[in-house]
Nucleic acid binder design. Structure first.
Length: 722
RNA sequence: UGCGGGGUGGAGCAGUUGGUAGCUCGUUGGGCUCAUAACCCAAAGGUCAUCGGUUCGAGUCCGGUCCCCGCUACCA
């Protein structure tokens, strides 16, 4: 079938600081599971590896915030995530965790190997340190002014305005996002992976994979073309895998060094565990391989170091460079490992038109879905696969979920199976009739039928799961058409022999569907196999057969495989989402901090609005020259949402001020408006207009603005405010 | 404002290396009644955002313009 003898398939380690939502499933775990189930169905040797990613700064922050320990945080989410995967039928061979002993050991050894080979560049650098929080600051937790484009909210690792990759020390006027304080520079030693010197090898590696998806290649190439930089593989932090160098304290491995090694340690753990299982019982089939291999001790290595193993990483688009560049670089530097053969990264799934957000509770949580839609895992699997963000971001809507469930799963697939089984019970008491004479239509049907396994295979192998699923549905459509064209319920009155053949063939289609749907709809497949009493050891290639159900074979009583989802259910889900939108509005003023490793930066709020800012001296206050003024002219600044250009009479002069009030006031309404104006604020160009001062505005919790003006009319322009 | 992704029949999408424009849903008409008012057939409906270029031929390649979405920016 291919040049590979076995497969190591990994799915991105989810970060253990929150539960899982549909975006996780659609983007990564579901396609991976479909792929793996397909491989198993083909009899391939495959290990499907995943686990919780439990280190890194955000978890320590969450623990601090909740007044608990990082270990308790990860214990909680490891359980929640593991259960959710299990209940959705994501068929990992192992779901491990990076806080485990074996992981720490593996990561430590990996680091040591590189260390002893002299791979790392050791460098003492000055890192920012937040004295108030008593910790070094990861780049992401420092904001400041970008040296390249003057954006004042650039992060320490990257300026999102101009896209440049930065070092935190490049930032002008840095601030800690924990305390808002200016951090101090402190010397610290770290170990860098020299991506720059490894670049030629990485270039060659990426070049050898022209077949990768365009989104993946595009991102890799943009990294490579701008030149790779050495990247620190250690961090100053307590939570994580300790840097295994003598005399080094308070340092751990960088979470992106540690996490992909989690795939390796999980594989080891799988083989260790299955050895124990095999000692106590016969194994359940999944572990058969371990029984057969003589070199049990090194079994895991076959999955990581043998050229005949195909390593495939399923990830979301946010992980591309780590899996395509940094992890391969680590593996190259180590020397004994194979490299990823494919990295089918998906884009993101949106929900009802908005980006899914953990912190804003804009999500369909898997654990909640399981409670609200019992035994409907396959309905969600179906919708998410049919709508998977394979080539671009896609949108999940509840209406679409309902439509796909009702019009496709129920009406096409479920209905075909149901009418076939009902007729079989009705005419033959559930015994498979013998096919007698084939007419032309039957031959055509059989010919069509035989094409499906290959068609679906081909799509899956190219990671085109939407297409594969559509083909599966086409087989059910073929079945419906066959029944409609041949009308056994009419012919039964005139030609009983013909009906036998029709029903036999329809039943063979049902049996084929059972096999072919398994990667996509495993729960339904299992249910259906029981219903038609089908041997469950059948493999993918058996799906070309037309004798899966032999004449006289007794099928069991049938029941419906899918049920309709009614409007009220959908309405209540939409309502629930709207409520969380409303909740967000009231939450928005509470302090918030970046909690998700990869989440967008918007939740960061540096000014904790409900708390007073730090004390200042009277002198500090006295530096400000605030006056009463009057607006003489006002006009919108073109091509902006919020900006208004104002001409102000300050009593001392007339000056131009640009102010962000356009959302709340119309220019003509505010001519003559008395305002408070800070007149000695350094001028600044905004949209190429020099703004010479700042209008003071009061802002309520909804972000609405209003002017601050003197309460007596005889206070004239130029009156000072103190 | 910059970056990214898009603009294909009412809706959501597919269109691989340029060669008669497809799919699912919806609509309309018909058939069937075994089936969860499900299924099957047929029809209507698109100058593939727009302008220009390359070509024997462009949804597909090149350039310009407009519009939409996401992120980002502007609030001094």
């Amino acid at each position: 079938m291919s040049k590979f003898k076995r497969y190591t398939v990994t799915a991105a380690l989810p970060y253990a600081n929150g539960p899982l939502h549909i975006g996780h499933l659609a983007g990564c775990y579901l396609p991976a599971d479909i792929y793996v189930r397909y491989l198993r169905s083909n009899g391939e040797l495959v290990k499907f590896i995943c686990g919780s990613d439990e280190h890194g700064v955000p978890i320590t922050i969450k623990a601090k915030k909740e007044g608990t320990t990082p270990q308790k945080v990860v214990d909680k989410y490891h359980k929640i995530m593991g259960d959710a995967f299990d209940e959705f039928g994501i068929s990992f061979d192992i779901y491990a965790r990076t806080s485990s002993k074996i992981h720490h050991k593996t990561a430590t050894e990996f680091f040591n190997t590189l260390y002893q080979k002299g791979v790392f560049k050791e460098e003492i650098t000055e890192q920012y340190f937040d004295e108030k929080a008593n910790q070094f600051l990861a780049d992401r937790y420092i904001v400041g002014t970008c040296p390249k484009c003057a954006n004042e909210n650039a992060y320490g690792d990257q300026c999102e305005s101009c896209g440049s990759t930065l070092n935190a020390t490049d930032l002008i006027n840095p601030k800690s996002t924990f305390s808002g304080e200016k951090p101090i520079l402190k010397k610290t030693k770290n170990w860098f992976l020299p991506l720059d010197t490894l670049q030629p090898q990485i270039d060659a590696y990426i070049d050898s994979h022209k077949e990768w998806k365009t989104n993946v290649l595009g991102q890799c190439k943009s990294w490579l073309s701008s030149g790779l930089q050495p990247r620190a593989m250690t961090r100053d932090l307590d939570w994580g895998v300790k840097v295994p160098i003598e005399g080094v304290e308070g340092k751990v491995l960088y979470v992106w060094f540690d996490a992909p090694i989690g795939y390796i340690s999980a594989t080891k753990e799988f083989f260790n565990t299955s050895k124990e299982i095999n000692n106590t019982n016969e194994g359940d089939g999944a572990n058969l391989i371990s029984n057969l291999k003589p070199h049990e001790k090194e079994e895991w290595e076959l999955y990581w170091k043998d050229k005949e193993t195909k390593l495939v990483h399923f990830i979301g688009k946010d992980n591309i460079v780590f899996h395509c560049i940094i992890f391969p670089a680590m593996l190259m530097a180590e020397g004994s490992y194979i490299l990823p053969e494919a990295v089918p990264a998906n884009e993101f799934l949106n929900l009802e038109g908005n980006k899914i957000s953990t912190s804003r509770n804009w999500a369909v949580w898997l654990h909640e879905y399981l409670l609200e839609f019992t035994n409907k895992q396959d309905a969600l699997r179906y919708t998410l696969c049919a709508n998977a963000p394979e080539t671009k971001d896609n949108d999940f809507t509840w209406k679409d979920f309902q439509a796909k469930n009702n019009n496709e799963l129920v009406a096409i697939l479920g209905n075909f199976i149901n009418r076939t089984l009902v007729l079989t019970h009705k005419y033959y008491d559930g015994k498979v009739p013998e096919a007698l004479e084939f007419i032309k239509a039957d031959i055509l049907l059989l010919k069509e039928l035989s094409k499906f396994p290959e068609k679906i295979s081909s799509s899956i192998k190219q990671y085109r799961f939407r297409e594969a699923l559509a083909e599966l549905m086409n087989l059910a459509r073929l079945g419906n058409k066959f029944l409609a064209d041949n009308e056994p319920w009419i012919i039964i009155k005139t030609d009983k022999n013909r009906v036998q053949t029709i029903m036999n063939l329809s039943l063979q289609i049902v049996a084929n569907l059972t096999i072919l749907m398994e990667p996509f709809l495993p729960f339904t497949s299992k249910k259906l196999a029981t219903m038609i009493n089908l041997n469950n050891n059948l493999k993918w290639n058996d799906a070309t057969r037309t004798d899966l159900l032999l004449p006289g074979h007794q099928i069991n009583p049938s029941s419906l495989l899918f049920e309709k989802v009614e409007d009220e259910i959908i309405d209540s889900q939409i309502l629930k989402l709207n409520n969380s939108k409303i909740d967000n509005q009231s939450e928005i003023n509470k302090s918030n901090i970046l909690l998700n490793k990869n989440e967008d930066a918007s939740p960061i709020v540096i000014n904790f609005k409900n708390e007073a800012k730090a004390d200042i001296s009277f002198d500090d206050f006295n530096k400000m020259d605030i006056r009463v003024g009057t607006i003489l002219e006002a006009e919108r600044v073109p091509k902006t949402d919020k900006l208004m250009k104002l001409l102000i009479d300050t009593g001392i002069d007339k000056r131009t001020v640009v102010s962000g009030i356009a959302a709340y006031y119309k220019p003509e309404e505010i001519i003559g408006q008395k305002v408070s104006i800070l007149v000695n604020l350094a001028p600044r160009k905004i949209k190429n207009i020099e703004s010479q001062g700042m209008i003071l505005m009061a802002e309520n919790s909804n972000g609405e603005l209003c002017f601050v003006e003197p309460s007596k009319l005889n206070i004239n322009n130029g009156a000072s405010i103190k």
